[in-house]
Design a protein around this nucleic acid. Structure first.
Lengths: 290, 290
DNA sequence: ACAATAATGAAACTATCCTTTCAGTTTGCA
DNA sequence: TGCAAACTGAAAGGATAGTTTCATTATTGT
């Protein structure tokens, strides 16, 4: 290796800006399974990245190699060196940052939270919750707290695409009675309540319960007092090296639920999505490509 | 990979006794720089071991591979699997659920996204972005799109607690000019824009840039067109087994940034937090305990 | 010590891979 | 809007790598 301390991955990273679309696509594919992907035949790599082989050949030349074989050769050298070095420590997430860097500490904590929380989860509950979310015979109300209303809204935005009769109850508690007026027996409430449990939210839960609604609760490891009112309760560990809590695990659960519900309802949703697309087209909200 | 958990190295070790002289020589050479040596051309390997290429070809077949290419292919698979850090290589996250359950598939994908995105990140950029977010000599504007405005708001809610002069620009584009009126040179914009890139958001970025603002962009792996206007750009991988994209990695970055900024400003923030607590007490928004 | 068997590598052959050219397409700019 | 430059992939060519054959050498048993 002529270049002192720079890995090929670094070189690719560095030149990412100067690359063309297909090349960038390829670059990502290389970095995806680095370095294994780069050690196979050029055509396999091209295939994985959905580009043509000439693109690969050109890019490696752009990166300063004489040809693909030379590129591979240096990759192998790099691999040799890496394996030899005392610890091939991949226990750090943001490579190039000390393991004490906030990025690594925080990510570590979040992964830990995810592992722990997922380990705790009752899959039966989860499936039941998804089924309930997919039940269009009754309305679906979604509500969050001071911070968690962002999660609530995230769920709302997606549910709204998937099914009809989804209501997002905004956090201004003055308006709650109006919302509750229309609640029927067996309506579903999804409630987010994590620590600094809000008395307002508890009130709402009680009222909803009083009107016969079923409650799905997303809370933290200590569980909001609402859990005694809830039919199904998901608790996520939320502690991270920060003055605040992490919503990452909660979001993961929410997104997973969205995916699961979407799977359950694909037949009904498909058409709904198409209609949505058409409307987007008409409003020209999005750019056509990339 | 037919054999469940056995690495190729193991297979070679196991059959070491049954090999002939030249083959044993070769085997040692392979294990010497495993797996790099086996990933090069057959002739290079033969040379290193001081045997002939047919010897290599024969031994590989003896080991049960159809030919040298197949041998290499499996070596690469092995490498791929190895690189995935032990932490992340969790077969099932939600124990008690089949690995094909949405919970496991989704989580797997998210962890993968996190690993990949974090691996991409330039720590220097990250630190610079945090420093900029902590810079109270200028205003901080936060803006998101149709879905991402939830992320924007999440960031806003926390930043608002940490520092003064934080503005959340709501997505209704009619009001943008009003917001932009007050933008000064060197104000900071945090913009969220993931695929289905919105033309509105691009417009806003252009206008902000035109007024001399610095832009920090959170986008996806394909990068919003805004990236060419941005000073700092964070791209997260967002693909999951769902009809929609995952914001989990983006949220992780946002939360980490919040924690880092909070660290940078602890002295100033402390007091601010206390004031906030006092006000919460007065409004009795929260329940006193758990 | 001799013959039979196995092992090994040189060389030829075949298959695959890498590169380059070229034409169609997109993109950027005036 | 039209033109020029750049990007991209299909296809062909040239190069390299992998396999097989076969003659030579080492090994083992008698």
């Amino acid at each position: 290796m002529e270049d002192a301390e720079q890995t090929i991955a670094d070189r690719i990273q560095a030149r990412l800006e100067t690359l063309t679309r297909a090349e960038r696509q390829l670059a990502h594919s290389i970095l995806e399974n680095y370095p294994a992907s780069g050690l196979g035949p050029i055509s396999a790599l091209a295939n994985d990245a959905d580009v043509s082989t000439p693109t690969v050949a050109r890019m490696v030349q752009k990166l300063g190699f004489k040809g693909y074989p030379e590129f591979q050769s240096e990759l192998r050298e790099e691999l040799k060196a890496k394996v030899k070095s005392p610890i091939a420590k991949h226990d750090t997430w943001a490579e190039g940052a000390p393991s004490g860097h906030m990025l690594n500490r925080f990510t570590e904590a979040v992964i830990d939270n995810i592992r722990y929380s997922l380990g705790q989860i009752d899959t039966g509950d989860f499936d039941a919750a998804c089924a309930q979310l997919a039940d269009t015979t009754s309305k679906l109300h979604i509500v969050g707290g001071r911070i968690t209303h962002t999660m609530a809204e995230y769920l709302f935005l997606h549910m709204q695409m998937i099914r009809p009769d989804v209501i997002h109850i905004q956090s201004t508690s003055n308006a709650w009675p109006h919302y509750l007026l229309d609640v029927k027996e067996d309506d579903t409430f999804v409630i987010f309540d994590v620590r600094r449990y809000e008395s307002n939210t508890l009130k709402l839960a009680e009222m909803a319960r009083g009107r016969g609604a079923r409650i799905i609760l997303f809370t933290d490891q200590w569980r909001s007092p609402i859990h005694s009112l809830a039919d199904i309760c998901f608790s996520s560990r939320i502690v991270v090296p920060s003055a605040w809590d992490s919503a990452a695990t909660t979001l993961l659960l929410v997104e997973t639920a969205i995916a699961a519900v979407q799977d359950l309802m694909w037949a009904d949703t498909k058409e709904r999505m198409q209609t949505l697309e058409d409307m987007f087209d008409q409003t020209k909200l999005f750019r056509k490509f990339t």
